[in-house]
Nucleic acid binder design. Structure first.
Ligand code: MN
Ligand code: MN
Ligand code: MN
Ligand code: MN
Lengths: 221, 221
DNA sequence: ATATTTTTTTAGATTTGTCTAAATTTTAAT
DNA sequence: ATTAAAATTTAGACAAATCTAAAAAAATAT
C-alpha cells in the first residue's frame, strides 16, 4: 500500500464515513464535513481519481473503489487504536481523544500500528464503541457501548457485563437482564441519570446510572 | 508556546543539535544534515528570524535564541519520550525507533506529551542514552549508556548496575568495579565481544559482553 | 417549457516549502 | 593584493493544498 499525504488521508477517511449512509458522496457534503470549500474537494477528487482510489465523473458524485476502501480502513484502524491507547493507557477523557487521534492516525509506519495493536491486546472496539479494523481490514459490523450511551428507541442486545460482583448479578437477575437480552432505552431521568428500559413484551424497568454504565450492548447494522 | 510546522520543527531541532559543537551554525552544515539545499536553508532562516527564533545576519551563520532553544527542547522531549515508548512498551529494536519518533515528535498536543511522560514513569534517558528534557526543558547534561555502547577511550563513571544478582555483584567486586568507579574502554575483541577496560592506575581488565551490557556509565560534558 | 436556484467545476491567485541556476559575498591560495 | 575557490544568497520556477469569483451544469419551481 502506497503512502498518502495527511490531506489525502483525511479526504479518503471522510468519504468512507459518508458513503455508508449516502450511496454516492457529493462535493458539498464532503466540503462541509472537512471544513473546506467545494472547489478544493473537486481538485482533490481529480487527484484521487488519477491515483485510482475513487470512482468519479464530473457532476456525478464519487465513491471509494476497492483500493480506496482498503486505504480508508487502514486509516480508521490507526485512528481507533490510538483512541484506545489514549483512553486506556494515558487516561484521557473520552471527549479529548478524538482530536489527538486525528493527528496520530497519519503516522503511517505499518510496524508501529501492528505493534501498538499487540501492546493494546488487539482491542475490537474503540472507546466510543466503534469497531476497530484488524490487520486485514476486517471488523465487527456493530457498535458496542454501555447502556448509558445507547441512543433512545434503538434495539440492542446485551453482550457484556463489566462488573461481575454478586450484587451486580443479583440485580441483573431480578430485572430479567442477561447476556443476549434484547432491549431498548425509552427515557432518561436527568435527576439521577436513571434509565427506563423496555425488554420485548415486558413492562418497562428502571435502571440506575451505575448499573447502566456496567452493561454493554451491541447494536447497528 | 506557538505551534510550528513539521518542517520548521525539523530545522529548529537540527540547529539545536548543531550549535552544541559549533558555536555558530552554517547554511551548508544545516542543509547537509537535513538532506536539503542551501537555498532552502536560507529561505527558512529568514522565516525563523521573522518568527524571532534565531539570530541571523546574511553570510554570518545563525544560532537559536532563548525562545528557539525552548521550542527545540520541547521537540527533543517529544522525540525521546516516543523513542522510550517504542523501545520499552512496543519492544522495537534500537535501530528502528528513530525514524518513527521523527514523525511522532510533530504531534504537538501538550497534554499528550505530559500524559505520555507520566505513563512512562518520567524517564530521564532515552534508549540511546540521551537525556530527556522534563516539562520545563531541564535535563541531565551527560549521556548514560551501557558499557558495551561506550565509545573507546572516553572517561566514564559507573552509575547503575541493572542486574543485581549475587553472581553479578561477586564478579564486580572481584574486578574492582562499583558505583562511582571511573573507567574507559580500550579495546573490543570481536570474537566474543569482550571488552578491555582501564580503571585509573590499575592494570587493564577484561569484561564479558554479558557483564558489559548490565553496567551503565555516564559520560560527556 | 422556461426560468430560477443550487450544485459543481473552472480559472486564476495565494501560501508553504522546495528546487536549480545565477549572482554575490566570504575565505583561501598564490 | 589579486585571483581562485567555496559558501551563501537571490531570482525565478514548481508542486501541493488551499481559496475566491465566475462559468457551467443539474435540479427545482413556476
Ligand atoms: Mn473517533
Ligand atoms: Mn486526521
Ligand atoms: Mn521530525
Ligand atoms: Mn535518541
Amino acid at each position: 500500500m502506497l503512502n498518502y499525504s495527511t490531506s489525502e488521508e483525511n479526504y479518503i477517511k471522510t468519504i468512507f464515513h459518508l458513503q455508508v449512509d449516502n450511496d454516492t458522496v457529493t462535493t458539498n457534503a464532503l466540503a462541509h464535513e472537512l471544513l473546506t470549500r467545494p472547489a478544493s474537494v473537486t481538485d482533490m477528487m481529480k487527484k484521487l481519481k488519477t491515483k485510482k482510489l475513487v470512482q468519479y465523473q464530473p457532476y456525478k458524485g464519487f465513491r471509494l473503489n476497492m483500493e480506496g476502501k482498503k486505504v480508508a480502513l487502514s486509516i480508521i484502524r490507526r485512528h481507533r487504536l490510538w483512541e484506545f491507547f489514549l483512553s486506556e493507557k494515558l487516561k484521557f477523557d473520552w471527549d479529548e481523544i478524538h482530536d489527538v487521534a486525528e493527528e496520530l492516525e497519519h503516522v503511517s509506519s505499518r510496524k508501529l500500528v501492528d505493534k501498538l495493536d499487540e501492546f493494546l491486546g488487539y482491542p475490537k472496539f474503540d472507546p466510543h464503541g466503534d469497531p476497530i479494523p484488524d490487520v486485514h481490514g476486517k471488523m465487527e459490523n456493530f457498535q458496542r457501548v454501555s447502556l448509558s450511551a445507547l441512543p433512545f428507541n434503538t434495539l440492542a442486545e446485551v453482550c457484556l457485563v463489566s462488573n461481575q460482583s454478586s450484587g451486580m448479578l443479583e440485580v441483573l437477575r431480578h430485572k430479567n437482564i442477561a447476556i443476549g437480552t434484547k432491549l431498548e432505552v425509552k427515557k432518561k431521568f436527568g435527576f439521577d441519570n436513571s434509565l427506563e428500559i423496555k425488554i420485548r413484551q415486558q413492562a418497562p424497568v428502571t435502571i440506575s446510572e451505575q448499573l447502566a454504565k456496567n452493561i454493554f450492548v451491541k447494536y447497528g447494522s
